[in-house]
Design a protein around this nucleic acid. Structure first.
Lengths: 342, 342
DNA sequence: ATGAAAGCGCTAACAC
DNA sequence: GTGTTAGCGCTTTCAT
């Protein structure tokens, strides 16, 4: 913690016998500064080990070049790709990312929002926690005019852009794919419909069935927490049914994969007895046998899109409220777990 | 960007007809302020929606409560767990994390170090890029007495703590496991030995062979970039050999898994013809068939350990240079890909 | 127990 | 092109 004396623009100014203002301009390569002076300033700055004091600068400019991020969990394949995409854009544009995780609780989400508010982030990128039902804790940002973009797990808000894939359509496509291939008793394993994401996926599944004139069967709709264990539980549930489903559409890959595994161990053939479609295109979907048909969920692209939109808005290029929802393309990837029914 | 007027301590001071100094003290519950006054200050602050300006404060106090993080890539299972662990500790201790990725290039690593230096982070947590050979770009931190901890991909430095697992021992154990189970022609797929991590794994592999009096065979040591494709390439290499290995120890799971897959497609039985051991305990190691024997690499624990050490040091609890290296426990997880040789 | 005053380092408006 | 000036909002002696 040894705080040695810091070099300031005044030190540079003194040594060069010019004003601090000129140094300030020279450091950011202002045209209005003589090229030679600029060079002298920059050279000396480097020599002295000068580093700009971002607080003084932020204090003056009232902007921090910092973007706050709140996600439910960092440690998933999807989310780490989202973050990677954001970081890529942000750093190219000179923004820092402050990243926090709510661990799926409202309590921590509120605390994070608070911290980021006090950190005076220029903007906020949020994927909501599982528990979150209302979003009043973001009102301070909205009131202050700090732009806020939701992604993936969104809530509608007139002042906030949302970035999502069309979960309804993706689920519809996934289910239709199974129907087109001759499957009729299709089970859906989904998450709590408090979440927009899972509600939409369930809706897509139901609509596809309806379009094929298949009566919905409540026994074929499971609501789980979508973990690996949930996959195992779902398999147990299936094994106890008198009348097995001939296909399963799971709202994520982890759950699908562990469900498949468990069923396979009990002698059920995949896709012979039960076909599978997952969601996310997690790396494990390419490893499980048979390879899992799934929906490609473009995490990296979503992170890039969210960061790009936010930064464009900060630069005054776009208006966030004009385009209220951006929908990213997702597509069905057909693999071996869901061929035509014999 | 609409900057509405912010509430400052002056606003509070004016309304309460006291001085800003008293407000400042009152806000942080200083004993020297009358209890009643304190309450009045805090109540009014809440009412007005006052938020402390961290820049002004940091500018004065010269500390930021911010920790910088540089990692090669955010989007891996291991790294996202590391970050999750760090975030968990940091947020509990009132620190923010600024996270950057070098994308495995020295150039970006230097740029990130620069940014974080200018952001005046209180400390730094770094996992080095693949390319990084010298670490001069971190000297500014060291010169300023800003604590720096390396983790996973480390370089030795007298002033910096390193947090690692014992890669040598883990690789030794993995190889010994294969030897103990009767395998003798063991191939190693590893990464560039510029990296301490891969160099140590190679060394462990070699030592185990030597301890079993097995002559090293250069044809059995592959240096790859450890991607999924590298796994496929390695499989092709193996298929072309006149004398196949009877086991493979891969320095990561992704490479092992894709190698196994490719060999299986060509009719090689795993583990019947070739046994496999991986490294990392990636989720896919539990999904591939047969399940992959691997080394558990505790990412979350490593993130927690790194953050804890740094914050303890910042609080003056520990001295970073006293304990120079911390080694986290990793262990072999035996699964179906490496049973006793028949 | 409270206040006055002096900056922390930087930037932007304005002047020349 | 460059300098002057006046803060940004907060903390911290030093008085009182």
């Amino acid at each position: 913690m040894s705080q040695q004396k810091e070099v300031t623009i005044y030190d540079i100014a003194r040594q060069l016998d010019i004003s601090a203002a000129t140094v300030s301009r020279g450091l950011k390569n202002h045209d209005s500064v003589n090229k030679a002076t600029r060079k002298k300033i920059q050279d000396l700055a480097k020599e002295l080990g000068y580093r700009s004091n971002t607080f003084a600068s932020s204090l003056r400019r009232k902007s921090t070049n910092t973007i706050g991020v709140i996600v439910p969990r960092l440690s998933s394949y999807f989310m780490s790709n989202v973050i990677a995409g954001m970081e890529n854009i942000a750093s190219a544009e000179g923004y820092n990312l402050i990243i926090t995780q709510s661990l799926e609780t409202v309590k921590k989400e509120i605390a994070n929002a608070d911290t980021l508010f006090n950190s005076r982030v220029d903007g906020l990128l949020v994927s909501l926690s599982f528990e979150t039902e209302n979003i009043d804790h973001f009102e301070p940002f909205i009131k202050k005019g700090i732009p806020l973009i939701f992604f993936d797990r969104i809530k509608q808000h007139s002042q906030c852009m949302g970035i999502v894939i069309d979960n309804y359509k993706a689920a519809y496509d996934a289910t239709k794919h199974l129907l087109d291939n001759g499957y009729r008793r299709i089970m859906h394993i989904g998450g709590s419909t408090v979440s927009h994401v899972y509600a939409e996926r369930l809706r897509g599944y139901k609509q596809a069935l309806q379009d094929y004139k298949i009566a919905p069967d409540p026994k074929l709709v499971l609501t789980k927490n979508m973990s690996e264990e949930a996959g195992v539980e779902s398999a147990r549930y299936i094994l106890k049914m008198k009348h097995l489903p001939d296909a399963v559409f799971s709202a994520n890959d982890a759950c699908a994969v562990y469900c498949m595994r468990t069923l396979k161990k009990e002698g059920i053939r995949i896709p012979g007895d039960i076909a599978f479609v997952g969601f996310n295109n997690d790396p494990m979907s390419k490893v499980v046998e048979p390879n899992l048909t799934t929906i490609n969920y473009p995490g990296y692209a979503m992170g890039e899109a969210a960061a790009t939109q936010l930064i464009n808005h900060l630069n005054g290029v776009t208006n966030l409220t004009a385009t209220n929802i951006i929908i990213l393309r997702s597509e069905l990837i057909v693999r071996a777990s869901s061929p035509k029914k014999r």
